[in-house]
Design a protein around this nucleic acid. Structure first.
Lengths: 152, 152
DNA sequence: TATTGTTATACTCTATAACTATA
DNA sequence: TATAGTTATAGAGTATAACAATA
């Protein structure tokens, strides 16, 4: 289980063979590569991965509540507040008083937010093609499918 | 590209269909699930995912330098210091003066560190079987392979 | 000059408790 | 009493600059 590959002080090539069979480790490295690339793709639009994800769900679900958005993004309610603040301060989304519950806000994208989302979506699709370049079309679909099954 | 699925204030089912085709998002969710499970598996042994990964590389490469370990784990040198401190304070690894470079330390696992690594490795394999349960053997191998290709 | 390990620092992400105003 | 949004806070993870000792 992990045999030494050299004498102390003389190791030349670092082995992480055991780790490369550990999916958490491999996934962390792949996710880091993907996140770096997508953040680079979104930076010119003033978005990050998490703000793009939030904007995407808001565009698809106008009128949703912040707690619903937090559930969809799998983040805690308190951590969503500065994310929605950021999108609102950029004029991309707005918080409307919910008609049926005065504690809640209905979230929706502004016209500028919808336009930016379309550009960001295109940028993310280009990023997607870039990072999954080493994969075939069937593999790419299989990867998404397997990851979704692991999460569920 | 993201059609509304309800009227404002009346959204019942939140759609994240666009996000589910975005591999960064899917991977983040899968990684979160995996990391939570592996940290739970390692907690009884006093290890976390990052300390297990570091211990694994040290066991496989006795005598390696901290900078080599940081490279192997894809983390910055300053961030490795408290990780090695933690392993050393637990009596699992030690820092020896490097014979050929008085600036550097040669890292190695103590006997206790090697014994704990074997138990941790077994725990991680059980975790691995648990989280990849929805996958077949061939799929599991294909997933690791695809993630490795994406990272490279 | 460059590199090793280190300190200090800062920014993001994540998680929990507690507050307010409603329900 | 429970819930929605919020504040405050604390813990990880990550990134950079700069220092002392050494190469």
């Amino acid at each position: 289980m992990a045999a030494p590959n050299g004498q102390p002080g003389r190791t030349r090539c670092i082995s992480d063979a055991d780790l490369r069979a550990f999916s958490g480790y491999v996934m962390k490295r792949a996710f880091n590569a993907i996140q770096a690339d997508v953040n680079m793709a979104l930076a010119p639009l003033g978005l990050r991965m998490i703000t793009f994800s939030a904007l995407s769900v808001i565009v698809s679900n106008p009128g949703l509540r912040q707690s619903q958005l937090a559930d969809a993004l799998l983040i805690e309610r308190p951590n969503l507040v500065p994310i929605v603040d950021e999108l609102q301060n950029s004029g991309l989304v707005y918080r409307d008083p919910a008609p049926d519950d005065r504690r809640a806000y209905a979230l929706a994208a502004t016209p500028a937010g919808q336009r930016l989302y379309e550009r960001a979506y295109a940028a993310v699709q280009a990023h997607e093609a870039r990072v999954t370049k080493p994969l075939g079309t069937a593999e790419r679909r299989a990867l998404i499918d397997m990851l979704t099954r692991i999460e569920g």
